[in-house]
Amino acid sequence: FSITQFVRNLGLEHLMDIFEREQITLRVLVEMGHKELKEIGINAYGHREKLIKGVERLI
């Protein structure tokens, strides 16, 4: 299971460039909250919320 699959499953594949540029893996994403996601350029609250909720389902 990769970050690419995870992001695609959430319908947020347009954010993949950010994850690749910042070298974010699923392991790193698990540790990130709204503040960190915003810092790397994910400005939409809804997108950040989707990512965080998606990660919570993985754990």
Rank of each mutant, 00 (worst) to 15 (best):
L26I: 10
E49L: 12
E20D: 10
I3F: 10
F1R: 08
A44M: 08
L58A: 06
L26H: 02
E49I: 11
E13K: 07
G33N: 07
I42F: 04
F19M: 06
L10K: 00
H14A: 12
G33H: 06
K35E: 11
E36A: 09
E36Y: 04
L37M: 08
H14Y: 13
R48I: 08
R48N: 02
L26D: 02
S2T: 15
E31H: 13
L37E: 01
L29R: 02
L12K: 00
L15D: 00
F6L: 09
N9M: 13
E39L: 11
A44P: 07
I40S: 03
R27L: 13
E56V: 10
Q23L: 07
L15R: 00
N9V: 10
L12F: 04
E49P: 03
E31W: 10
M32G: 02
L37T: 01
R21N: 08
F19W: 02
G33L: 04
R48T: 03
T4W: 10
S2V: 08
V55L: 10
L37I: 02
G46V: 15
G54Q: 05
E56F: 07
L10Q: 04
L12R: 01
R21L: 06
M16C: 08
I52F: 02
N43F: 12
I52M: 09
G54C: 08
G46R: 15
F6T: 01
I24T: 05
K50D: 05
I3N: 00
D17W: 14
L26W: 13
H47K: 08
Y45C: 09
I40D: 00
V55R: 04
L37C: 04
E22R: 09
I52Y: 02
I3K: 00
V30I: 14
Q23R: 14
I40A: 06
I59F: 13
F19K: 00
F1N: 11
T4Y: 14
I52D: 00
L51A: 01
E56K: 14
V30N: 06
M32C: 02
V30L: 13
E13A: 12
M32T: 01
A44D: 15
L15W: 03
I42S: 01
L51V: 08
R8P: 00
G46D: 15
E56C: 11
F19D: 00
N43E: 13
K50Q: 10
I24Y: 03
F19E: 00
F6P: 00
K38Y: 09
G33D: 06
K50T: 12
L37N: 01
L15I: 08
G11E: 06
H34V: 03
I59E: 07
G54D: 04
E36K: 07
I18E: 01
R57D: 12
E39Y: 07
L58K: 02
G46P: 14
L51T: 00
R48H: 03
H34D: 05
R8G: 08
I3Q: 01
K38D: 06
E39N: 11
V55H: 03
L26F: 11
Y45I: 11
G46K: 14
L10A: 03
V7D: 00
H47Q: 15
R57F: 10
V55K: 05
I59M: 13
E36I: 05
M16N: 08
G41T: 03
I59Q: 11
L29K: 01
T25G: 06
G46Q: 15
L10W: 03
I59Y: 09
M32R: 02
M32F: 08
V55T: 07
R48W: 06
E39A: 14
V28L: 12
L29Y: 02
V28K: 15
I18P: 01
E49T: 08
K53Y: 06
